[in-house]
Amino acid sequence: MRAVIAAAIGLAAALALVFTISAIGAPPGETSPRPLLTTVPGPKK
Rank of each mutant, 00 (worst) to 15 (best):
P41R: 11
G25I: 03
P27L: 14
L15V: 09
P33E: 02
I21T: 15
I24M: 14
V40F: 11
R34S: 03
R34M: 04
S32E: 07
P35E: 10
T20F: 01
G10H: 01
M1E: 10
A3T: 13
L37N: 03
A26D: 05
P33V: 02
L15W: 02
L17M: 11
F19N: 03
A14P: 01
A26G: 05
L15E: 04
S32N: 15
G25F: 05
P27S: 12
S22K: 06
T31W: 12
G29A: 06
L11E: 04
G42Y: 03
L15Q: 02
S22R: 13
L36I: 15
K45A: 14
G29E: 05
A6T: 04
I9C: 03
L17F: 12
G29I: 05
G25L: 07
I21D: 09
M1T: 07
I5V: 15
F19K: 02
M1I: 08
L17E: 06
K44A: 14
A8N: 09
T20W: 02
G10Y: 00
A16F: 04
T31V: 12
V40M: 12
A23W: 13
E30Y: 00
A23E: 06
V4P: 01
V18G: 02
E30Q: 10
S22P: 00
G25P: 00
E30H: 05
T20A: 14
T31D: 05
P43L: 15
A16S: 10
S32R: 07
A8I: 07
P28M: 01
T39L: 12
P28L: 04
P28N: 05
M1V: 12
P27G: 13
I9L: 14
P28D: 05
T38H: 10
R2N: 12
I9K: 03
G10A: 15
G29T: 03
F19E: 08
A6S: 14
A26R: 14
A3F: 12
P43S: 13
P35H: 06
R34C: 01
V18P: 00
S22T: 07
A7Q: 12
G10V: 03
M1G: 08
A6G: 01
A3G: 09
A14H: 01
A14M: 14
A23I: 09
R34Y: 08
P41K: 08
A6R: 12
I24Y: 06
P35Y: 03
A23H: 12
M1L: 13
G29Q: 06
G42M: 04
P33L: 02
P35V: 04
V40E: 11
V4L: 10
I24K: 15
K45C: 03
A3W: 10
T39P: 00
P27I: 07
V40R: 09
I21G: 11
P41L: 10
G42I: 00
I24R: 15
A6P: 00
R2M: 06
A14T: 13
A23V: 05
V4N: 04
G42T: 14
A13F: 05
I9Y: 01
A23S: 14
I21F: 13
L11Q: 02
G29P: 01
P43T: 14
I9Q: 01
T39W: 06
G10L: 12
